Simulated assay, not measured.
Amino acid sequence: MSLREALRHAATVLLALLCAAVLTACTNAELHKQEAYVFGTRVDVTVYGETRETAEAAMAEVLREFDRLHRAYHAWQPSELTRLNDAIARGEVATVSNELAAMLTDAGRLADLGDNLFNPAMGALIEMWGFQADEFVPRRPDPSALRAVLDAAPRMSDLVINANQVESRNPAVKLDLGGYAKGYALDRAAAILRAKGIENALINIGGNILALGKKGDSPWRIGLQHPREPQPLATLPLYDGEAIGTSGDYQRYFELDGKRYSHLLDPRSGGPAEATQSMTVLVTPREGAGTLSDAASKPPFIAGDNWRQYTRRYGIDHALRVAANGHIEVTRELRARLQFPSGTAPVTVVD
């Protein structure tokens, strides 16, 4: 399966799940929805309990913001981020927007918490594996080039950020915010909707989801994608201010010689992490919940059997992992919220 086909399949499944689990009455006059394709995935915004005119104006502003963020922080098409990467490669100080400076500072903090298993400075590795391309061609990187990047050990802590001036102590730093920007966009969308007086909405960016309010008398209900089947692994209610993020080896990947190569790279080895099929984290209401739901799913995914120590570091008690062998592990707090379909394999509950 090509990367494009995999993305299309994942987007289709996610859309079907969301429509089945959330939009139980798609013709309901109080339910309004807009969709787009941004950040390399399908996004949709659903508003409940507003007039069509109010909902559509608010959703359109959210989608315009998504487009702005996509263009501003694209990792390989000309953008503010690529200009910063060019300056870093030349050993120069770059002047960036206040927004990007704040994003980089926050991403550095999250990277430190996760022992750099979440590492937006490793864009060179992502490029080597072919995941920075509009027209994807499956390939394995040259071992010597990969080793050179690993030896250079680019980290977010290499950046020196002074107000909106950014430089790097390490010229091997090449920034890619693909594991951060979707979550950041969730928070921006929530801020826009709240400013517009929207109290009940659901924002979905390729499976990274944030809830505002509820849907009528009930909470929003979502489905977690099964990493190997075209069906939900489980469903759960999502309450006001909560965000959920999933990292999965089924989201962006290619296959060569019968082996799956995921875009979720382990900065320690330089290759795709192989111990986990999917890792889901649910972030309870707090500032930056959307951003955290995106970034904090990466370290536990990569850590494999040691996943729980990383969710604890991020202050996350609701988490679920599907191991490489298909075994499901879930925290006690999240298990209490989940509904599994009949026939689901045994689930291990962890503290």
Rank of each mutant, 00 (worst) to 15 (best):
G114L: 08
A296S: 14
G40C: 09
L282H: 03
F340E: 09
A195W: 00
G258Y: 03
N162K: 13
A185C: 00
G304H: 00
P143W: 07
A289N: 01
N116D: 14
R68K: 11
Q34H: 12
E333Q: 15
A185R: 03
I192F: 00
E333T: 08
V281L: 06
V93L: 05
T46E: 10
L256T: 07
A121M: 06
M59K: 13
P230D: 15
A275E: 09
Y239M: 13
E127S: 11
G290C: 06
A60I: 05
I244H: 02
V349N: 05
L175H: 08
D294R: 03
G123R: 05
R228W: 07
P120D: 07
R147T: 11
E61Y: 00
D67T: 14
E229N: 08
V22W: 12
D151M: 12
R68P: 00
G130H: 02
L100R: 02
G49P: 01
N119H: 07
E92S: 11
L63D: 04
V283Y: 04
A121Y: 04
G216P: 02
A101D: 02
L224Q: 05
W307C: 10
L110G: 08
V47W: 02
R4E: 15
D317R: 15
V45N: 04
L175Y: 04
A124W: 01
D351H: 13
A87Q: 06
L202W: 04
L233M: 08
L18S: 14
G197A: 01
G207A: 08
G197S: 04
L146K: 09
R286S: 00
D151S: 13
G248L: 06
K259Y: 05
S342Q: 14
K214E: 13
L15V: 04
Y261N: 11
I222W: 06
E80Y: 05
F340G: 11
I192V: 06
N164R: 13
A133E: 11
M128P: 00
Q339H: 14
Q231Y: 03
Q277T: 00
S97F: 08
S97H: 03
L100P: 01
K214Q: 14
Q165N: 11
G40K: 08
R52E: 14
R155N: 02
T12N: 12
D217H: 12
V347P: 06
L238M: 06
G223H: 03
Y261A: 09
A148K: 10
T82Q: 06
T280G: 07
L63K: 11
G130T: 04
H74K: 06
A16L: 13
G315W: 07
D257K: 12
G271C: 09
L282V: 12
Y73C: 07
E127F: 04
N119D: 12
G213L: 02
L320Y: 06
L292P: 02
Y314W: 06
E255G: 04
P154L: 10
H263P: 07
N208W: 00
R332E: 15
L210S: 03
V149N: 03
E92T: 09
